[in-house]
Amino acid sequence: MASTEHRTGETDAVVREWRAEDGWGVLDSAETPGGCWAHFSHIAADGYRELHAGQRVRLEWESPGQDGYDFRAVLVVPRR
């Protein structure tokens, strides 16, 4: 059962999947077991914002999460 306690953190993560047509995806890290839900509006980038499977990012997250995930991104910074 997911905890309702509000927690936050920051970590490195890898994009598991990105649904460009829907504007969201799932990021994986040791600190966000089961995946972290991310929306395009939380990506720190200019222009069209999307991610790609396998891409490394810096992730700021919070819980409880969203849409069945225990964690939700609040800021995603793509690694170059």
Rank of each mutant, 00 (worst) to 15 (best):
V77R: 02
A20P: 03
T32R: 03
P64H: 00
W61S: 01
Q66S: 13
A53W: 05
T32M: 01
R58S: 13
H52Y: 13
V57I: 04
D28I: 04
W61I: 01
D22F: 13
A2E: 15
D70G: 11
W37H: 05
P78R: 00
P33R: 05
S29G: 05
W24I: 04
Q66C: 12
G54S: 05
S3E: 14
E5Y: 12
W18F: 02
G65N: 04
H42Q: 14
W18C: 03
P33H: 07
V77A: 03
E10V: 14
D46M: 09
A20F: 08
T32D: 01
R19N: 12
G23L: 07
E10F: 10
H39I: 10
S3R: 11
G68E: 06
V77Q: 03
D12G: 12
D12L: 10
D28K: 07
G47P: 03
D70F: 06
V77W: 03
D70N: 12
L75S: 07
F71L: 02
A30M: 07
A44L: 12
R16A: 10
D46W: 09
E10Q: 15
P64C: 02
E10L: 10
G9W: 05
G68I: 04
F40H: 11
S29Y: 02
E62D: 10
A73C: 04
T8Q: 15
P78E: 00
R72T: 08
A20L: 10
D12K: 11
A45E: 06
A38C: 15
L27R: 00
L75I: 08
Y48Q: 12
R80I: 10
H52V: 15
R16V: 09
H42G: 10
A53H: 07
E31P: 03
E62V: 11
W37I: 03
C36Y: 01
V77P: 03
E10I: 11
